[in-house]
């Protein structure tokens, strides 16, 4: 079971695992479809109308924006992150440890790599769905420019793959389900707060900006914000490259770590 064979062992059968997880989501569809649609409404109420009433225009990239307009692309990025990370982090952990789903599937023609690639694909699907749902809501509130905002759809799928891979990695590294509080505290929450989601990073000290630029969510927010502001530019290719490279690296690492846990 050489690690070099991880790519070779991934086949079309990963879609069977994806399909299984999507089917489970459809069984419990109300709890899967309603939150991504309602969450942004809550954000808009709390931050846009509540906090926004006290916030003057936000200056970003030489222009002034309403707070709600500034916040909208951040909400999209956060939604993609939460929904895909949590799907694999808790979902895969439960399937591994409690439901023994992977033990059942590993005796069928699926390889461990097929199973885990399927997990990442279904986590990404949830993230992409959440991204699209939030985009729809912010569009209805008139907070997104078109056609540039359409970039968000394929981007949500890619970022979904990245965050689902992170989730799978955390699940692979956590001995007990309670340990998953640690990546939430150390990784997810700091990103939620410090990736330019709620306020521009320009005003922050240099070291905070530097740290924020290491966080994957910052790069996602850069692109979603440019998309809803109709300010897409070639400079964003760096953000895209960062996401692509990180996605490949974390996907590989998460499959490797989880496979070691599955086969022993």
């Amino acid at each position: 079971m050489n690690n070099a064979f991880i790519l070779k062992n991934i086949s079309y059968r990963a879609w069977h695992m994806w399909r299984r997880n999507v089917d489970v989501s459809l069984v419990t569809w109300k709890t899967n479809i309603i939150p991504p649609l309602l969450e942004p409404v809550l954000y808009i109420l709390a931050f846009g109308i509540g906090l926004g009433a006290y916030v003057q225009k936000i200056n970003f990239d030489g222009r002034a924006y309403d707070y709600l307009t500034f916040l909208a692309p951040g909400m999209i990025a956060v939604g993609i992150m939460f929904h895909s990370t949590f799907d694999t982090m808790y979902g895969a952990f439960v399937r591994l440890r409690y439901q023994k789903t992977f033990d059942a599937v590993i005796t069928t023609p699926l390889s461990a790599e097929d199973i885990l690639a399927g997990e990442i694909l279904s986590g990404a699907t949830k993230g992409a769905f959440a991204g699209a749902a939030i985009l729809l809501i912010v569009t209805l509130f008139g907070l997104a420019s078109y056609p540039s905002s359409l970039v968000i759809l394929p981007l949500a799928a890619l970022a979904g793959l990245m965050f689902a891979s992170f989730g799978l990695l955390f699940a692979a590294l956590a001995p007990y389900i309670d340990n998953l509080n640690l990546p939430i505290f150390l990784f997810i929450n700091p990103m939620f707060l410090f990736s330019g989601t709620f306020f521009p990073l320009d005003g922050m000290p240099a070291w905070v900006r530097l740290a924020a630029n290491l966080l994957p969510l910052t790069h996602l927010v850069n692109i979603t914000r440019a998309a809803t502001f109709n300010r897409l530019s070639p400079a964003l290719l760096w953000d895209l490259l960062y996401i692509l490279v990180l996605t490949a690296a974390v996907a590989y690492l998460s499959i490797r770590k989880m496979k070691a846990r599955l086969i022993k």
């Binding site: 069984v27 023994k100 059942a104």
Partner: peptide, 28 residues
């Protein structure tokens, strides 16, 4: 191979019929 495992690892989210149908997908 047909494998009947020691531990019960059926899919708790699916019905009896759906368990069989989903499992058959893994065999194309």
């Amino acid at each position: 191979l047909g494998v009947c495992p020691q531990e019960i690892n059926l899919d708790p989210d699916f019905s009896v019929l759906k368990n069989l149908v989903v499992y058959s997908r893994y065999f194309d």
